[in-house]
């Protein structure tokens, strides 16, 4: 295997909420063109980790190094500018307005002074169609309200938006939860296409072992705020993954407990 340089290195990250230690020295490397699955039980600290990366919460200690540069984010804006694109569980979309208006929300292309500049709707429509097509969804009508799109299409919109606005590190928090089977596959295909672009590092949070196995190149398992295992996809067996996802307890035990 050829040696790659990680796009983002997380070293010994600690995050405390008062007395509660949500992350206790987490380290993680993510490489361009790879899907890095972040797995772990409820409350393990996955969402907390990505919130620190996205500049929502400041880290208590530890460092985040992006492209060799130390990153310290106190606002989401700073994280975005550093190339971290986060697709939240709620996707941060306004269901009542159009695809284009959502794609460019907060970063509209406009001509004229300040917030009263005129939006260049034609241009924005075209870019939206183009960017969505790049990762596999053809939308015929960019004026369609986002609320009328399917869950998978919305996910794609949020991902396409993050990439278009310069995300080098794409963070996806449970992108397949709350979707039907077909939609789930669509989203996985989208992630696969982003992976194939080659220059983007993807952090994927999921509770679905099958999905992780389908597209992940590398795994990190969290439990109670600490890393309890990591490895390449080809090194880990199915049982290892199941066990580590559950925080180290054997599924077999569970089977016994349920049987009893």
């Amino acid at each position: 295997m050829n040696k790659k340089i990680p796009l983002i290195e997380i070293k010994n990250l600690v995050k405390r909420f008062g007395n509660f230690t949500a992350l206790n020295g987490v380290s993680l490397d993510v490489y361009p063109g790879e899907v890095h699955a972040l797995l772990g039980d409820n409350g393990a600290g996955k969402s907390t980790l990505i919130k620190v990366l996205a500049g929502v919460h400041p880290a208590t200690s530890g460092s985040i190094i992006i492209d060799g540069k130390e990153g310290k984010f106190s606002t989401p804006r700073q994280a975005t500018d550093a190339g971290i694109g986060t697709v939240y569980q709620d996707l941060a979309l306004n269901a009542l307005t159009s695809v284009t208006r959502n794609f460019f929300l907060g970063r509209e292309i406009k001509k004229g002074p300040g917030a009263f500049g005129i939006m260049q709707m034609k241009e924005m429509d075209n870019i939206t169609i183009e960017e969505m097509a790049k990762i596999g969804i053809n939308i015929s009508d960019p004026t369609q309200a986002v609320g009328t799109m399917s869950g998978g299409q919305r996910q794609t919109l949020a991902i396409a938006r993050a990439i278009y606005f310069g995300a080098k590190i794409l963070i996806l928090d449970e992108p397949t939860s709350a979707l039907g089977q077909k939609q789930q596959m669509e989203v996985l295909k989208t992630i696969k296409r982003v992976q194939k672009l080659g220059h983007i590092a993807i952090i994927l949070i999921t509770h679905n072992e099958i999905h992780a196995r389908l597209i992940a190149d590398r795994y990190t398992f969290l439990s109670l705020g600490e890393v309890i295992g990591k490895g390449l996809a080809e090194e880990l067996g199915g049982d290892d993954i199941k066990k580590l996802m559950a925080g180290g307890t054997e599924i077999g035990d569970l089977r016994d407990e349920l049987g009893a």
């Binding site: 989401p76 804006r77 975005t80 939240y88 709620d90 996707l91 941060a92 979309l93 306004n94 269901a95 009542l96 307005t97 208006r101 460019f104 929300l105 907060g106 970063r107 509209e108 406009k110 004229g112 917030a115 009263f116 500049g117 005129i118 939006m119």
Partner: peptide, 27 residues
């Protein structure tokens, strides 16, 4: 003009439509 054509209009709609989404996108 402001509501349908300008950036401010998009911000007004998103502020009322989904406040947290608007904030997450830097509105």
């Amino acid at each position: 003009f402001i509501l349908s054509r300008t950036q401010a209009g998009n911000w007004i709609y998103s502020t009322g439509g989904n406040l947290s989404a608007a904030q997450a996108n830097g509105v």
